[in-house]
Design a protein around this nucleic acid. Structure first.
Ligand SMILES: [Mn+2]
Ligand SMILES: [Mn+2]
Ligand SMILES: [Mn+2]
Ligand SMILES: [Mn+2]
Lengths: 146, 146
DNA sequence: TGTAAATTGTAGCCAAGGCTGTAAAATAAA
DNA sequence: TTTATTTTACAGCCTTGGCTACAATTTACA
C-alpha cells in the first residue's frame, strides 16, 4: 500500500506542475487533430471532416468548429468540399505527435501492457510527456529491442 | 525515426480510445481536488480554499465554483469558513488517486526521469492510467526494488 | 473594542469543446 | 437530368474551467 504523504511539495513548484498539466490538456486537441488528419491523408489520400468526426467519435459540427479554430491558428488549411490539409507547421506538429504517440504505445507494450489497452491509454498519456521523459522512454526501448 | 502509419486502426476502436481519453480528461479535476484536499488535511490539519487555490495555481473564485460542483457530486463537504472536507466517496477517490499518482511518479523515476520532471509529467499522466496499466507499472516497480 | 487583514462568497465575463437541428452544396444514383 | 444521399456549413444551446471585480464574513491585532 502507498502511505499518506509525509510532506507537501513547495507551493510554487506544485502550482507549476498543475499549470504544465493544464497547458498539456489545452494542447491535446490540436495534436490529435493534426495527427489524425496526417494519418488519413497518408493512408487514404484525403482527410474529410466526416471521417475525422467518425474516428474521433464526436459530431461533425464539433469537427467543423475545431477545424476553423485550428485554421485560424495556422495548423490546417481547408479547400471547401475538398477535405482538410495541413500547413507546414501542422505537418511538423503531426510528425512530432505521431512519434511521441508511438513511443508511448511501444513503452507500455514493452512493460507488458496488452496492445489494445496500450493504444487506449497512450491516446491520453501522450499529451503529457515532456521532452526529457520522451528521451527516457526512447532509450529504454533502445535497450529492450525484441 | 518513427515511420508513417501503414494502416489505420478500426474506426470504432479508434473512436473508443478517443472517448476514453476525453472521459479521463473530464475526471481529472475531481481527482486533483480530492487528492490535494486530502493531502492538505493530512499534513496541515485543514484544507482552506485559499490554499487549494495557491497550490493549484488558479484563482480562489475558480476553486469556490469547482468545490460547489464537487459538493453537488457528493465528493466534498464544506463547513462555511471552516475549510473543506471529503465525503467517504471523496476520501476513497483521493486514496486511489494518490496511489496511482505515486506509482506513475515512481515508474518515471525508475526509468531514469529526474525527480522534478517526473513530478510534473505525472500530474497529467496519472489521469490516463487504466487499471491494467497501473498493475503493470506496479509489478515493474516490484521487480526493480532499489 | 475596534479596525485591518485574510478568507470566503457572488456576479459576470470568456474560450474550449461538446451537442442538436436545419440549411446548403456537392456527389452519386436512378 | 432529376432525385437522393452525402458532405459541409451554420445557428444556437450547454458544461467545464478559467478570469476579474466587488461584497461579505471571519479572524487577527493594535
Ligand atoms: Mn495521438
Ligand atoms: Mn491523443
Ligand atoms: Mn494527482
Ligand atoms: Mn493530476
Amino acid at each position: 500500500m502507498t502511505p499518506s504523504l509525509e510532506q507537501l511539495p513547495d507551493e510554487q513548484a506544485q502550482a507549476a506542475r498543475f499549470q504544465q498539466a493544464r497547458d498539456a490538456r489545452n494542447a491535446a486537441t490540436a495534436q490529435d487533430y493534426v495527427e489524425l488528419i496526417s494519418d488519413l491523408i497518408a493512408t487514404t489520400g484525403e482527410a474529410r471532416s466526416v471521417d475525422v468526426a467518425k474516428r474521433l467519435g464526436v459530431s461533425h459540427a464539433t469537427v467543423v468548429k475545431t477545424v476553423n479554430r485550428l485554421q485560424k491558428e495556422g495548423l490546417i488549411n481547408t479547400k471547401p468540399y475538398r477535405g482538410l490539409f495541413l500547413t507546414d507547421v501542422g505537418e511538423n506538429l503531426a510528425t512530432e505527435s505521431r512519434h511521441r504517440h508511438q513511443v508511448v504505445t511501444n513503452l507500455l507494450i514493452a512493460l507488458g501492457v496488452d496492445e489494445e489497452t496500450a493504444q487506449a491509454d497512450a491516446e491520453g498519456i501522450e499529451h503529457h510527456i515532456s521532452a526529457q521523459t520522451l528521451a527516457t522512454f526512447e532509450s529504454y526501448l533502445q535497450g529492450h529491442r525484441s
